[in-house]
Design a protein around this nucleic acid. Structure first.
Lengths: 341, 341
DNA sequence: ATCTTCGGTCGAACCGATTCGAGGAATCGA
DNA sequence: TCGATTCCTCGAATCGGTTCGACCGAAGAT
């Protein structure tokens, strides 16, 4: 079922069929109708490989997701969904590629075999081999996240530094004097994961500006870890009255630890952070947090990528978003903690 | 950077380079080394489109995910991850396609343009247009889930009927006499969503076999809905002492409603169901549930698909898995409910 | 009446791989 | 020494599209 077959049945040449499809040259109205009828009847669609070969573009973008695809956070999942949606709207297909660890073959295939016109790269580290690899390959790409050389690539990102600083200021405004930052896992922080690093910066800065006492801890990305992390914090820092966090997966566990410690939220203890909106709303109690607009960010990444594909010579662009804090039910005026042992 | 360039620099013909790459004909050891050196130096990879065009296969599979990609459940996410992993292991790329609603163009592109060698289809309904469409397209496909004509396609699925029946028997063994099934959203059930339908069947059957009183309700896929659903249940059925559910997203909300109603789990009230293992373990308290082994199922789907791609004439196969219930902390002996208003 | 112009169509080249039949050189047996 | 066999390599065809130059007839200009 190829273009030659359509041509034969319509009594025209292959090129005329092609022009009918693309509209790049005029075709007589009657001829066009005849060809279209045959196409519709046979349900013909041009072969994607042949088209890609001749045109030199695949109408496909790669989406490189983090290795541990088992444990995508809600925010990450939101990025995937929004990238896929935005790509679909632009009539682009999305090739999914896990990267890192045992999946390097997959990443390499995507980068190197002219399979895609461009790549959206998620979960970028401050020093990231994949960025180096992509840059030297010459393939257009856009990061969701950025490296320690932000000017060298096009990216969109969440301004964790500002957001966490904002959280700290918000807590300080409410009278809290001793605040903890619950970051993500120690491994991620050690690996130079940008958001974690920038959260540290923002926290340190804001705590300094407001003359507060700040504690920083790492915590694995699950509820269990959140519980034990907060238990340790409460025990070690009796004056602590509030937490800011970028570790959404640990938050339910943190709630649990507070409940166990007979601390009500937001009465006795305040907690705030950065999280996906729907997720924050569905928590109990709903979390006061800076809402990450994954939809918007993913769509923007695709848009920038499409521009870069159209003109790879374009200067690099970056977009750093810092959504405001949505006040919900987990932050309130500071009150000295009652001791319960 | 094409095969001709490699050939020129190695001083051989293009076909010799091709044979070196594929090993389909002998190439002199020295020639092979020379060619390989050039390939390594230039980092050459054969153009995927050209190869696909000539070979008639793309080394890519399509993964059709549910429309509301924003709200993939943990189980669904597990399927995606395991399919991607399994495909990567088989050196296959994965083209992601949201289906349904506004995304039909994407689905159509995947099915029709020879973009993929086969398709894994998720979230199948009892009557499903996409299955019809795929069957008439002749493209090999494997379902995760199946329609009301199970013999007409190859699929893997979770035996929700058996699992829910098992949950009911487990609760009956513990002495519970009145049990509720919390199903997924009314829309899904109305749309003929297989798992929901089969859960109903299994529930009705087991309740009958054990002479219990059974109540069935639908519940949207979020915590909020879970809370109000259970609140209504508790109010309407004072004798109710246990719940079985296939709605994992609603479970945290159900816990909450029980807590509010001053019912301890598993002391006053038992709850069990079907859920992803990691998720069930991380819940508080950990959920007694049949653990869905998404990894296994996804990998098996890919395996079956690869077989069908290799030989489309193969008879259809099906795999219905019914993992045993993992006893955790949410089911216990029946005890008449204390009235708290 | 002749020259342009232009809309509509065709044939052929091309994209970058794979694969088949054929050919050349070296080796072997007779 | 000559033909057969084996081993290696090459050239050409092919996959299914797109696109460029050319051509043809009809309409418009002079």
């Amino acid at each position: 079922m190829n273009i030659g077959e359509i041509a034969k049945r319509s009594g025209v040449s292959r090129s005329t069929v092609s022009y009918t499809l693309s509209g790049k040259r005029p075709v007589a109205e009657e001829t066009r109708r005849r060809i279209q009828a045959v196409i519709d009847e046979l349900g013909y669609r041009p072969n994607a490989a042949a088209r890609a070969l001749k045109e030199g573009r695949t109408r496909t973008i790669g989406l490189v997701i983090p290795p541990a695809s088992q444990r995508l956070t809600d925010v990450q999942l939101g990025f995937v969904a929004s990238v896929v949606d935005a790509a679909a709207r632009a009539d682009l297909d999305v090739l999914l590629s896990p990267s890192g660890g045992e999946h390097d073959r997959s990443f390499e295939r995507v980068v190197t075999g002219s399979r895609v016109d461009g790549v959206v790269l998620m979960e970028i580290r401050l020093e990231d081999d994949r960025v180096t690899r992509l840059r030297q390959s010459g393939l257009p790409f856009v990061g969701i996240g950025h490296t320690s050389h932000p000017e060298e690539m096009t990216w969109v990102d969440i301004d964790y530094e500002t957001l966490i600083a904002r959280c700290v200021h918000h807590l300080a405004d409410l009278g809290h004097r001793q605040i903890a930052l619950v970051n993500r896992s120690a491994e991620l922080v050690a690996a130079g994961y940008g958001p974690s690093h920038r959260a540290q910066l923002g926290f340190t800065r804001a705590v300094g500006e407001r003359g507060l006492t700040g504690v920083q801890v790492c915590c694995a990305d699950d509820a269990q870890a959140g519980t034990s992390c907060v238990e340790r914090l409460l025990a070690a820092h009796p004056e602590l009255t509030a937490i800011a966090t970028v570790n959404e997966a640990a938050i339910p566990g943190m709630y649990r630890a507070l409940t166990h410690g007979h601390l009500t939220v937001p009465g006795d203890f305040s907690i705030t952070g950065v999280a996906a909106r729907r997720w924050a709303e569905n928590l109990h109690p709903p979390l006061t947090a800076a809402d990450i607009l994954a939809d918007e960010l993913g769509a923007h990444a695709v848009e920038l990528l499409i521009q870069r594909i159209a003109d790879p010579g374009l200067p690099h662009r970056r977009l750093l978003v810092a959504p405001p804090i949505s006040l919900r039910d987990t932050t309130g005026p500071a009150r000295p903690r009652a001791r319960h042992g």
